[in-house]
Write a protein that binds this DNA or RNA. Structure first.
Lengths: 201, 201
DNA sequence: TGGGTTTTATACTGATCCGAACATAACGCC
DNA sequence: GGCGTTATGTTCGGATCAGTATAAAACCCA
């Protein structure tokens, strides 16, 4: 029994995600957001609370859409190797997809900036660390399954492959093509046997 | 025959570098800079021209100081393998050095942001690409020297190891210790033989 | 000790930042 | 059709952004 809003909140969240993805948290202004949404500020605040709350929602949306294939690969792939490669391939493809902002939103959109936004950066950092832990847990499970030798080091492997994943985003921002990114993945995967058999070091 | 400035320009440039390194280009304000330098705005503009000019000078200083060991390794190491490992080790150590801002300034300080600063980001991107090309050229030379087999792919290898290098900085921002970063380097180097002998793919 | 030059210091510019106040307009229910 | 509720549009607020105008102060040389 009240006036209904005349914009599609989900669609506006999607547009916000795109802006944050392209320009980062601090690089996106409230005017950018309301302009892209075609709404004005009171509507914005009523619908999303604040810039920061919107950003956190946008990150969650990113994770469940553009970022989903990589996460899914980690969880659903039948082997540890397929999990890692699937994660990297999905990320490489997404990072270079034409029409989308280059690179991964979770990696890039708040890595550095003014002290005012430190909480936002920590929030995003937690997403990255969580992803790394999911990968580590998947590798642990692979050891339990006998898929990986017991000498393999899940933490070290997860750190290495996450670092490669993160490097892909910087490379994408620097203009690397999908072919180049997949070449990087090729090489990361070529290391697999050396990294997983006996003692990596 | 004029009033001498009463601050050490080189020292102030060093302080500016530290701020840009820690907070990035857009995350550092003119007030931050002048406060850290202990000077006021007219002195700032007389000495450094503009925020952007100062940033570019600060990047050059970074490259010639904190970034120098990595560059030097690429140029001076006796073998391709030592060049790559030296670059990564130097970077891993610098990224986790206590007292310094975590991560590499060239990788992190302007990867994303408002359209207003696009030129600054391009400028920094050129530094990154230049580093990658120096590595590639070093690998080409190694092939010419017979240090690497002729089937090795300098471009692909340079892209891969640069991606790892860039990933180190994100990991450092996320709190990775020097030990973790060097573990990542261990794994990147464990891949060396697989990546350089016969056909990497 | 005075003249010329450059650096200081204070204050200000217009623009933009995120967020909020205000009154008006559109809806469902009684 | 009036009422309560919510969304809308316009406008404002204090803070901060990068950069500058104006004037006073400090130096070297003569």
């Amino acid at each position: 029994m009240a006036r209904p809003r005349k914009f599609d909140r989900a669609e506006m969240l999607r547009r916000a995600m795109e802006l944050f993805w392209r320009y980062g948290y601090e690089g996106t202004t409230l005017n950018d957001l309301t302009d892209a949404m075609g709404i004005n500020r009171p509507s914005f605040y009523a619908a999303f609370g604040s810039k920061r709350m919107l950003f956190e929602e946008a990150v969650a949306l990113y994770d469940s859409t553009a970022g989903a294939p990589a996460s899914r690969a980690v969880i659903e792939a039948p082997t540890a190797r397929a999990a890692v490669e699937g994660m990297l391939r999905a990320n490489a493809s997404a990072c270079a997809e034409v029409g989308n902002p280059p690179g991964c939103m979770i990696v890039l959109s708040a890595t550095i900036g003014s002290p005012d936004s430190e909480e936002v950066r920590r929030h995003l950092s937690e997403w990255r660390v969580r992803g790394q832990h999911q990968l580590r847990d998947r590798l642990r499970r692979a050891i339990a399954d006998g898929d990986l030798p017991s000498g393999a080091d899940p933490d070290g492997l997860a750190a290495f492959y996450t670092a490669v994943l993160e490097g892909l985003s910087i490379q994408a921002r620097d203009g690397a093509s999908a072919a180049v990114l997949h070449g990087i993945v090729d090489r990361a995967m070529a290391a697999w046997d050396a990294l997983t058999t006996p003692a990596p070091r």
